[in-house]
Each structure stands twice: as structure tokens, then as C-alpha cells.
Simulated scan of single mutants.
Amino acid sequence: MLSPNDFEDLAAVERRLLAFEERYDATAAPFKWRHTTTNLHPHLERLDHHDRTLQAA
């Protein structure tokens, strides 16, 4: 998480974001998505149940 104190000014924020973009563009690679909405749904339900359990505690 970033806070306003992490950068000296907006120009520094811009430089950091542009540097990230360049690095990401240079290293990003496509991946083969193996889930469909059908087989992803049980995983999402499990996560939702887990979140509700934590909130109830």
C-alpha cells in the first residue's frame, strides 16, 4: 500500500509508474487460462464461505 509520504511529488509517482510499466511490458508473458466459469465457481464459493466465516468470528 502506498501513502502520500512514499513520494516527494507527483512527478516521482509518474516516474515510478512509468518504470513499472516498462518493466512489466518487457517481462510479461501470455499464459494459458485453464479455468472455465463452470470449474471456477466452486473455488469462488469456497472463498466466499471462508470470508463469511471470518467475518462472523
Rank of each mutant, 00 (worst) to 15 (best):
T53I: 01
R16F: 15
H35V: 04
Y24G: 04
A11E: 15
T27L: 09
E14P: 00
T38H: 12
L54P: 00
T37M: 10
T38I: 13
P42L: 02
A29W: 05
D51Y: 10
D9K: 01
D48T: 05
A26G: 09
A56I: 02
E8I: 12
V13C: 05
R34K: 14
N5L: 08
P42Y: 01
R15P: 01
P4I: 04
F20N: 08
R23H: 08
A19C: 04
A28L: 05
P42A: 02
T27P: 00
L44T: 03
H35T: 03
D25F: 09
H43P: 00
E45Y: 03
L47Q: 01
S3T: 14
H35Q: 08
L54S: 03
A12I: 01
L17V: 13
F7S: 01
W33T: 03
A29H: 09
L10A: 10
A56N: 10
R23W: 07
E45Q: 11
H49V: 00
H50R: 14
W33M: 07
L17W: 11
P42G: 03
E21K: 07
L47W: 02
A12F: 05
L47A: 04
L2A: 15
D6V: 00
H50G: 07
R15A: 15
R34S: 14
A56M: 10
R23N: 07
T27Q: 11
L54C: 05
D25L: 15
R23M: 08
F7N: 01
F7A: 03
Q55D: 09
T37N: 10
N39T: 05
T27E: 14
R46I: 04
T53N: 10
A29G: 05
L44F: 08
L18Q: 12
Q55N: 07
E14R: 10
L10W: 09
R34A: 11
P4R: 08
R34Q: 07
P42C: 03
T38F: 09
E22S: 14
P4C: 09
H49G: 00
H49L: 04
A12T: 02
P42S: 02
D48W: 02
D9M: 06
A11H: 11
D6L: 00
E14M: 06
T38A: 15
F20W: 08
T36K: 01
F7K: 00
T36V: 01
A28V: 12
M1G: 14
D6G: 04
Y24M: 08
R15M: 09
R46H: 07
H50T: 11
L40R: 08
M1H: 05
L47E: 00
